[in-house]
């Protein structure tokens, strides 16, 4: 029986598919996967799933998109406008900078504690 193996490097990260192992059952699959896919790389967690339980749809079955030109969505037109005389914009940018600083400070405090 083949078990697909997914490895997560750090807590919170995605489990990425790294290969598979042959094992008679779930417990042995977990034991083998540790050696084959966790021993030499930074690993926080490993998932194993029976290959049969994984469902697939590929680009022959469907059209996934992502192939048409969506450049029109990138609103670049206003990037070079000088907004320094427009009070609303100046205030909004100042607010955003202050909020960003606060977030940074909170993050740092959390990391130090």
């Amino acid at each position: 029986m083949i078990w697909e193996v997914f490895r997560q490097e750090k807590p919170g990260g995605y489990h990425r598919h790294v290969g598979n192992v042959h094992a008679p059952d779930r417990e042995m699959a977990k034991l083998f996967a540790q050696i084959q896919h966790g021993r030499r790389m930074q690993t926080h967690s490993i998932w194993v799933a029976p290959q049969d339980e994984i469902s697939e749809v590929d680009d022959e079955d469907t059209s996934f998109g992502g192939t048409t030109d969506k450049a029109y969505r990138w609103a670049m037109t206003y990037n070079r406008v000088d907004a320094s005389g427009i009070q609303e914009v100046v205030e909004s940018e100042a607010e955003q900078r202050a909020a960003a600083k606060k977030r940074e400070a909170a993050k740092k405090e959390e990391a130090d504690s």
């Binding site: 042959h22 042995m28 083998f32 050696i35 021993r39």
Partner: peptide
């Protein structure tokens, strides 16, 4: 007996 058990015991 299998590749996996070989690797496990070698390990």
């Amino acid at each position: 007996p299998t590749l996996e058990s070989d690797l496990a015991l070698s390990n």
